[in-house]
C-alpha cells in the first residue's frame, strides 16, 4: 500500500508516531475526549494541574490584552481572540503563515474552579490562565485518628 510505504520511509511520520506514543503516556490518566483537538487556526493549549489550581497556557503571538476575551462559565473556560484582519488591502505577501482574524475555543475543565479568582497573564505572546480549584476539588489531607 502506498500509504504504508510512505509512513515507513518518511521520517516525519515515524517521528509523529514517536510523539503520539509519548503523548499517550502523558495523557494516560485523562479521560478520552476531555478536550477535542484544536480545529485549524484554533490556538493550541497546554493544560496542567497544580495542587491548588488548573493552569491553561496558550501561545498567542501578536495578540494584545484588549483583544482577549476570557470567561468561565460552570466548568468551561472560553477564550476568544479578536484580532483585526490584515491591514492594507493589496499588500503583496511573499509568505503568509501567521494566523489572522478571530478565533475562539471552549475548554472543559477537569474539575470545579473558583471563577472569582481566575487570573490571566499575557507575556511575550504567551497567555497563562490560572484557575484556582474550588474548595470541593482541592486535595485534602485526611487525618487518621487513633
Amino acid at each position: 500500500m502506498v500509504l504504508r510505504d510512505l509512513s515507513l520511509r518518511n521520517p516525519l511520520y515515524q517521528f509523529r508516531n514517536e510523539v503520539d506514543r509519548l503523548f499517550n503516556g502523558f495523557l494516560g490518566s485523562v479521560p478520552e475526549g476531555f478536550l477535542p483537538p484544536p480545529l485549524r487556526n484554533q490556538p493550541a493549549v497546554n493544560i496542567w494541574e497544580q495542587h491548588e489550581a488548573i493552569l491553561v497556557e496558550m501561545e498567542v503571538p501578536g495578540v494584545k490584552k484588549d483583544q482577549l476575551d476570557l470567561s468561565v462559565v460552570g466548568n468551561e473556560l472560553s477564550i476568544r481572540i479578536d484580532q483585526p484582519g490584515p491591514e492594507e488591502e493589496g499588500t503583496i505577501y511573499h509568505r503568509r503563515e501567521r494566523p489572522v482574524g478571530s478565533f475562539s475555543r471552549v475548554i472543559p475543565l477537569p474539575c470545579e474552579v473558583d471563577a472569582n479568582r481566575v487570573a490571566a497573564e499575557l507575556r511575550d505572546g504567551v497567555l497563562t490562565i490560572t484557575l484556582p480549584k474550588a474548595e470541593s476539588a482541592k486535595p485534602r489531607k485526611i487525618a487518621v485518628a487513633g
Binding site: E59, P61, G62, Y93, E97, G125
Partner: peptide, 20 residues
C-alpha cells in the same frame, strides 16, 4: 510562522516567536 510583506521601500518580515 512568518509573514513577508512587500512594501514600496522594504520587505517586512513578521515572525511569531512566543515566549522569547
Amino acid at each position: 510562522n512568518v509573514d513577508i510583506r512587500e512594501r514600496d521601500e522594504e520587505l517586512l518580515v513578521l515572525a511569531d516567536v512566543p515566549g522569547a
